[in-house]
C-alpha cells in the first residue's frame, strides 16, 4: 500500500474540520465527509454507511463527551488508495469502560432516549472501528472503510 502512487491521480488526499459541540453541526459533519469521499466514487449504500457512522461518532462526542455543553469536535478524513480513514475526536469526559459502551443496547443516557446502538452501527457500517479514550481527557474514534480496490490492480 502507498508504494506505487505514480499513476494514480487521487491516491492521497485529506481534510480537517473542527467545530463547536452543537447538534446543528452533526449535519455539517455528514455533508463534509460525504462531499470528501465522492472522489472515490462510492455507491449510494457506501455513502449512506459512512454518513451514518460519522453521525453516530459526532453525536456521541456532543452528547456523551461534552454532555450537551461547550467543547470542540474535530474530524480528520484521509484517502489512501481506495480507502478512507476518518477520525472523530473530542476533549470531553471520555469512556470509563469501552467494552461496556460497545455492547448493543447499552446506553449511559436512557433518559435522553438514546438507543445504545451508535457504536454497533459504526462497527457494522465501517470495515474497522478503533476507540481510544481516557476518562477526563477525551475520546478518539478511528474508522476505516475500503471503497474500491481498483487502484491496487492497475
Amino acid at each position: 500500500m502507498g508504494q506505487e502512487v505514480t499513476h494514480a491521480v487521487l491516491q492521497q488526499n485529506y481534510m480537517k474540520l473542527q467545530f463547536p459541540s452543537l447538534s446543528a453541526n452533526e449535519a455539517l459533519a455528514r455533508m463534509a465527509v460525504s462531499a470528501f469521499v465522492m472522489q472515490l466514487d462510492p455507491t449510494m449504500e457506501q455513502l449512506t454507511e459512512i454518513k451514518t457512522a460519522v453521525s453516530e461518532a459526532v453525536t456521541n462526542a456532543i452528547i456523551h463527551g461534552y454532555d450537551g455543553g461547550e467543547g470542540e469536535v474535530r474530524m480528520y478524513c484521509a484517502i489512501d488508495g481506495g480507502m478512507v480513514d476518518i477520525v472523530i475526536e473530542d476533549d470531553g469526559a471520555g469512556i470509563e469502560d469501552i467494552e461496556e459502551a460497545r455492547q448493543p443496547m447499552f446506553t449511559s443516557r436512557p433518559e435522553l432516549e438514546r438507543s445504545g446502538m451508535g457504536i454497533t452501527i459504526m462497527e457494522n457500517f465501517m470495515d474497522e472501528v478503533v476507540i481510544d479514550s481516557t476518562p477526563g481527557q477525551g475520546t478518539k474514534v478511528r474508522m476505516r472503510k475500503v471503497i474500491s480496490r481498483t487502484s491496487e490492480c492497475q
Binding site: 455528514r30 449512506t48 454518513k51 451514518t52 453521525s55 453516530e56 453525536t59 435522553l112 432516549e113 438514546r114 438507543s115 445504545g116 446502538m117 451508535g118 452501527i121
Partner: peptide
C-alpha cells in the same frame, strides 16, 4: 432522507 440511531431512540421512546 437520512436516519441514525437517534431515530431508534425516538421510536423506542
Amino acid at each position: 432522507d437520512f436516519m441514525d440511531s437517534s431515530g431508534l431512540g425516538l421510536i423506542l421512546g
